[in-house]
Design a protein around this nucleic acid. Structure first.
Lengths: 247, 247
DNA sequence: CGGCTCATTGACCAACGTCAATGCCGGTGG
DNA sequence: CCACCGGCATTGACGTTGGTCAATGAGCCG
């Protein structure tokens, strides 16, 4: 059941029948492994496959002429990498593994074909790409409008909720398998400034770290500091339950 | 022929038959006018219509708790505003007019229905949302990774090509109907710093302005300064012609 | 042990924000 | 016709945020 996390995510939006799930599974191709730093697909390539992250973190990124790298999105287990790119002629960015990664290949043509035949899956996958885009919009605002320390705080809030949605948190802590350099590449600041920003958050008691494990003792306080509003994640509230239950 | 510009854009990617165009036209609802500053739809609203810009500029934006506004995208004639949002429960951002605007309404349900029935239109519109998202990714990199003067230069390069694609340029100049405050809200800098950045570009002979008309005497030089690579716009080259012909 | 990667620190500099004042221009009312 | 006003562009002075460089430390691994 390789697509378990994905199906759980899609179900949030559009309840899928067993048939739908089977049809999706039928599209699945190989599973591949990537090491930290390896590229899954490069800028300029023709996107022939859609990738589904099973384990580990990956990212979309671009490299500027100056050589500095810019991370545009994080992809965690259950995330599809390229649905929102499949129809383009050439990749305008690369996708690389941020940690050891297990990835399922979904051949593009099969998937497009499936979407044409199955309305529920079409809507569910389309919804997925809309959420990805909503996240992108929020990142733009985050980077354009806040100080570095607020930016990281905002990122941590987002990743905590996203990781929690796929069962990757325990209690009030979770793993961010990234170096400060990589965090800096994401938030548009130098690694050194990222270091200082994280220290500021620790000093204010907003986070605590142990290696790459991040603990958030008081999520509401962190949200307030970061001006974080989870609306843009479009995560669905279970009936009678608040999105922030448990914090 | 209200959808003329849109159809021309879609045709770039997926040649549409007369039927397809007629089907699209059949979805069209009212035309509405908006003044500068008016909102077409607000954060939190349920997106019931898709908007097609016929005249003038609009934008997606979010407002931070501090009161500062962040512009996330520009929407110019021929652009669809909300295809990439229709399936979401609530708007996570607002859309407002940046100048006097004429807008065509396309009722959401009719459009979704049409997409389900017509594969060519489905692919064409989906491609549109992918291009929008590609632009968003580039904006993120632009804001996160470059100095303010390069950022504006990059923005001018992009808007010049996008405006040219819909016939809104003349010679080497075009209209950007925005105040420096609005440009600043877009690039994540203060209006004052935007002013200084524009002055720097003028001093270097990279642009010349006359009111809100921007002239680009040497596009290649501006591109180089901005590290602008038009790949991400996914504009299609006509056979035998370069995208940059005329510059 | 030596070499590597990553986190951390301090000193200094560049980019950008804020505040306050000025000028320009079109529109409006007298 | 002219005085006045409001929106926008521009300028200068000064403070803050974040970048750069260089050095140090801490943990991991062959």
């Amino acid at each position: 059941m390789l697509t378990k996390l994905l199906v759980a995510k899609l179900n949030q939006f559009e309840p899928l029948a067993a048939d739908d799930v089977a049809a999706l599974e039928a599209v699945a191709g190989d599973v591949k492994l990537f090491d930290h730093g390896e590229d899954m697909i490069r800028q300029g390539d023709d996107p022939k496959n859609v990738h589904l992250v099973l384990d580990g973190w990956a990212c979309r990124y671009k490299v500027l002429p100056s050589g500095e790298r810019h991370i545009i999105a994080y992809l965690i287990p259950g995330d599809l990498c390229d649905v929102n790119v499949t129809l383009l002629d050439a990749m305008d960015h690369s996708i690389g593994a941020l940690s050891a990664c297990r990835v399922l290949y979904l051949p593009r043509e099969n998937l497009i074909d499936l979407i044409g035949r199955n309305v529920r899956l079409f809507r569910a996958l389309w919804w997925c790409t809309m959420v990805d885009e909503a996240i992108l919009r929020e990142w733009l605002v985050n980077i354009g409008g806040r100080r570095a320390d607020q930016r990281v705080a905002h990122l941590i809030c987002e990743m905590l909720l996203r990781c929690r949605a796929v069962g990757l948190t325990s209690d009030h802590s979770f793993e961010i398998p990234l170096t400060q350099q990589e965090l800096g590449d994401t938030m548009g600041v130098s690694a050194i400034h990222m270091n200082r920003s994280l220290q500021a958050l620790r000093a204010d008691g907003l986070i605590a770290t142990e290696g790459r494990r991040y603990e958030v003792p008081n999520f509401r306080k962190l949200m307030e500091f970061a001006e974080f509003d989870p609306l843009y994640l479009h995560q669905v509230r279970k009936a009678g339950k608040d999105l922030l239950d448990g914090f």
